[in-house]
Write a protein that binds this DNA or RNA. Structure first.
Length: 607
DNA sequence: GCAAGGTC
């Protein structure tokens, strides 16, 4: 008997379906001589410090460097403290039973570093010795699964991938556990002051933006504005220059040849530019972009959106939620017309779905090369019954985005009018000719500047128009805004883009800080530690957060670059480089940062 | 009491 093990039940079910296996058992399925079982993500984790004899939180134990890491069952929090998660324990027992019976194992966890780790941790924890092969597919359509099974790889092909995954895991443990205890113990507070490769740079981003914003000194500047009249329709034009002093701007105002100053047509149109502009539809959603949009439009936190979306996924209404890809492959695209047809009776989107079915679909979101473990989020087309208002809101964002993404470009005309009246003034305006994808939600362009006119009257070069009003405007330069959940998620995704070192930047380009599956949890961790709090929609540091930031801000652990350095080394390990060298470096770094924090934390008492 | 990673 061959056992196929997937990362999660939904994938195991998909594969079983392709094989025509339909017999459902407790924790697995079977049929056609195969059994199909699954994990629920990581079932096992590196064992906590006490399992290596490091009891309590004690400076004597630091740095904790276990000679050999152990694995333990994922824990769950109960009234009695942390205990083995019973559902995990049960599933592991089921897997063990199946592995014991197996002649061969086929590894069908997600095709990536963590997927490999999920399987290997189970395999080694169960002390299993059965031979295994690897299914490596990047899309879960029937055809992709069949092709993958025709092309199974030897399990050992992925040994170096496991090595890199195991190193990632150990390194995060060593640095995180030791740094956390070192800072917590030396600070003298009884609180847990956690630090980690991902959470600490995230905290640093929030704190540094907060301080920059708080210490920002606004600069005053001045601009002149005029109101021009074209046959009763007026528009506002701004001085091309802005001025540091009021006097300079007043001079521009004084020179304006307005009606009140005795010039009936003192506005000379010296130029009219009208350019059509195509605006392509947005890409389909990945988790992060959906979390950002839901935060902007509905005020949901990243964590709320993930929970709601997981609920929709479990009711089979949307595809896999924790994806980092905004694309679909050609195989999924082929199903899109049938999918759209399921929404032609939708109360809000029905009309748009019908229209879209009659036109050529935009393929901007179709790119198989940009589909990683999972494709972009789509509705499945199953009928939704009685969703809670919040779930409905998320579902509608997913459906609406699908309709946008396959829609036509929005065609705009951007007009710029230059008027001379003493000096030069410009007015710009945008008119939408063909709404295209913008018809779906029918919302104003959020990027539209407040100075922009919604629409401008038709004027031609050479016209002399009356200037009916003028004003001197006092303005202030603005600081970068505080982070909110949407802007922080985006910053985490792109963290590393500004790294100077080209190799580190490259190593981080696909990853950023954290992963789609973990970013919401990172924000919640910082809140739980009382490092940050939500103030309206903004994320601002607390006094505790700021004092931790002050202690670590110039250390490596507070820089996104640390992830870049690790990613570069982990990729080298995946290509066969020495594991021992990197492990030795991490140990050395662990000793250093532990020593530094044991000293630095004492400073916190005085801040 | 602690990391980051995955998922029900």
């Amino acid at each position: 008997m061959k056992v196929i093990i997937a990362e999660k039940p939904s994938v195991a079910r998909e594969i079983a379906k392709v094989f025509g296996a339909t017999t459902k058992k407790d924790g697995y399925m079977e049929g056609k001589g195969y059994t199909f079982t699954w994990a629920f993500g990581h079932l096992l984790q590196l064992a906590p410090p006490q399992e290596y004899g490091f009891y309590g939180w004690n400076v004597q134990n630091l740095p904790m460097l276990p000679p050999k890491f152990k694995l333990s069952i994922r824990k769950v929090k109960t009234k009695e403290g942390m205990v083995d998660d019973p559902s995990v324990k049960k599933q592991l027992d089921i897997i063990k039973g199946l592995f014991d019976e197996a002649t061969e194992i086929i590894v069908a966890t997600d095709a990536g570093r963590e997927g490999e780790l999920i399987f290997r941790y189970i395999y080694y924890y169960l002390k299993c010795k059965k031979p295994f092969k690897r299914l490596w597919i990047s899309s879960q359509t029937d055809e992709a699964i069949k092709e993958g099974f025709r092309n199974l790889k030897p399990g050992s092909d992925y040994d170096t991938l496991f090595n890199s995954a195991h190193c990632r895991s150990q390194s995060d443990w060593l640095v995180g556990m030791n740094a956390t205890q070192a800072l917590s113990l030396s600070s003298g507070t009884r609180a847990v002051l956690s630090l980690g490769r991902v959470q600490t740079p995230t905290l640093a981003m929030i704190c540094s933006r907060f301080l920059e914003n708080k210490n920002f000194v606004p600069q005053l500047y001045y601009q002149a504005a005029i109101q021009v009249d074209k046959e009763g329709q007026t528009f506002r034009a701004m001085s091309v220059e802005s001025y540091k002093t009021k006097e300079e701007a007043q001079k521009i105002i004084d020179d304006v040849e307005d009606v009140a100053s005795g010039f009936p047509t003192g506005g000379y149109v010296i130029n009219v530019e009208a350019k059509p502009r195509k605006e392509p539809p947005p890409l389909l959603h990945d988790l992060s972009s959906l979390q950002q949009e839901a935060n902007k439009k509905k005020g949901f936190t990243a964590d709320q959106t993930l929970t709601l979306l997981q609920g929709l996924y479990e009711s089979k209404l949307v595809t896999y939620p924790r994806t980092g890809s905004r694309y679909i492959g050609d195989d999924v695209f082929a199903e899109v017309p049938a999918l759209l047809a399921k929404f032609t009776n939708h109360p809000d989107f029905g009309k748009q779905a019908n229209l879209l079915l009659q036109s050529k679909l935009n393929k901007r979101s179709v790119n198989a090369k940009k589909v990683t473990d999972h494709h972009a989020i789509l509705p499945t087309g199953e009928t939704a019954h009685q969703l809670t208002p919040d779930k409905q809101a998320i579902y509608d964002l997913v459906v609406g985005r699908m309709l946008e993404a396959f829609n036509q470009d929005c065609i705009k005309e951007v007009t710029k009018i230059t008027v001379e009246s003493g000096s030069k003034f410009t007015a710009s305006g945008t008119v939408i000719h063909t709404a295209g994808w913008r018809a779906i939600f029918n919302e104003a362009d959020e990027e539209k500047k407040d100075e922009e006119n919604a629409s401008l009257p038709k004027v031609v070069q050479g016209e002399h128009l009356p200037v009916t009003n003028k004003a001197l405007l006092e303005k202030q330069t603005k600081p970068k805004p505080l982070y909110n959940e949407a802007s922080l998620l985006k910053a985490l995704e792109t963290a590393g883009k500004e790294i100077d070192d080209e190799e580190l930047r490259y190593a981080m380009k696909e990853s950023g800080l954290g992963t789609p599956a973990t970013r919401a949890a990172i924000i919640e961790t910082l809140i739980k530690r009382d490092y940050i709090l939500r103030e309206k929609k903004n994320l601002v540091p607390t006094a505790t957060g700021l004092s931790v930031y002050n202690v670590v801000k110039s250390q490596k652990i507070a820089q996104a670059e640390l992830t870049g350095t690790w990613e570069k080394r982990l990729e080298e390990i995946r290509s066969g480089a020495s594991v021992a060298d990197f492990q030795e470096e991490i140990k050395t770094y662990t000793r250093t940062i532990t020593r530094e924090l044991l000293q630095a934390g004492t400073l916190m008492k005085n801040t």
